[in-house]
Design a protein around this nucleic acid. Sequence first.
DNA 1: CAGGAGTATGTTACATTATAACATTACACA
DNA 2: TGTGTAATGTTATAATGTAACATACTCCTG
Lengths: 143, 143
Amino acid sequence: MTTPGEQMQADVLAILRRRNVALSAYKVLEALRDAHPKIAPPAVYRALSSLTSKGQAHRVESLKAYVACQSKVHASASILSICESCGYVEEHLAGEVVEAVSHVVAETGFSSQHHVIEVHGICAACNARMPAPEGVGAGGSPQ
Amino acid sequence: MTTPGEQMQADVLAILRRRNVALSAYKVLEALRDAHPKIAPPAVYRALSSLTSKGQAHRVESLKAYVACQSKVHASASILSICESCGYVEEHLAGEVVEAVSHVVAETGFSSQHHVIEVHGICAACNARMPAPEGVGAGGSPQ
DNA sequence: CAGGAGTATGTTACATTATAACATTACACA
DNA sequence: TGTGTAATGTTATAATGTAACATACTCCTG
Ligand SMILES: [Zn+2]
Ligand SMILES: [Zn+2]
Ligand SMILES: [Zn+2]
Ligand SMILES: [Zn+2]
């Protein structure tokens, strides 16, 4: 018998790492059914909660979904860029931006604890794939 | 000059404006029952969708809730600061921060369209109310 | 080893948030 | 008046997330 909790977290993290696309908790659950046929939502949420609290995964608030952390050191918060066309999510170091945000809100006496910085737009690959600025339906194959 | 859900949107906006605290769509729905006894979720979501698309209200992604816009002009995106103690939400101009975020993600060829910038922490009033750094239960009266 | 506290995991049921799909109404205008 | 379109109402359900309790397992203590 392998240690259950660690195994679950490792399996969830492996699923999230397959592609840099955000997965909903229930998509993760489906993907887990291979290894854990009887799995139920609380187990997935517990694993995701552990992973996110350790910084090994992040919840993409504006997508209600989760991605694996892409940062090696993960200093402070990060910026997540989300491609509206292919779903690709990329993590960017945000040290200076976090400083700037904290500074802005500090002007009204607010003390910052946790930052959520997400950007929706079009990734480099999709920009290259559809250079036309004219109304083009979003349908590129995911990266 | 009867734009879509004019009355409904006005009622929703009035509810959101009562206090600068984020309300879930279902809290809004409850508050609407006075004026609209038979209201159902889709009507609320339609009104919220219209208001947010016009910039008169914002969805607080990290709270799954909604606030009235506090900006007069609402140039570009804004920063929402969210007090973990009293729930007070404040909107801040974010022009330079949006620039900085866009610049960071542009380094990988990402073109920004929509920004989500939210900060959790403690507001000035709650900081003043609980100066002790020792374990104090959060229970201040909302602003 | 027995008992038991404490933790981790499994299970059930439910709460909350959001939308799909279709019915009905209101109104503009031929 | 009919008829098309947009708005609104209604029903049902999907999607996301948690509370609450059951079970198991772990590590002491005696
Ligand atoms: Zn990370
Ligand atoms: Zn893309
Ligand atoms: Zn605003
Ligand atoms: Zn406060």
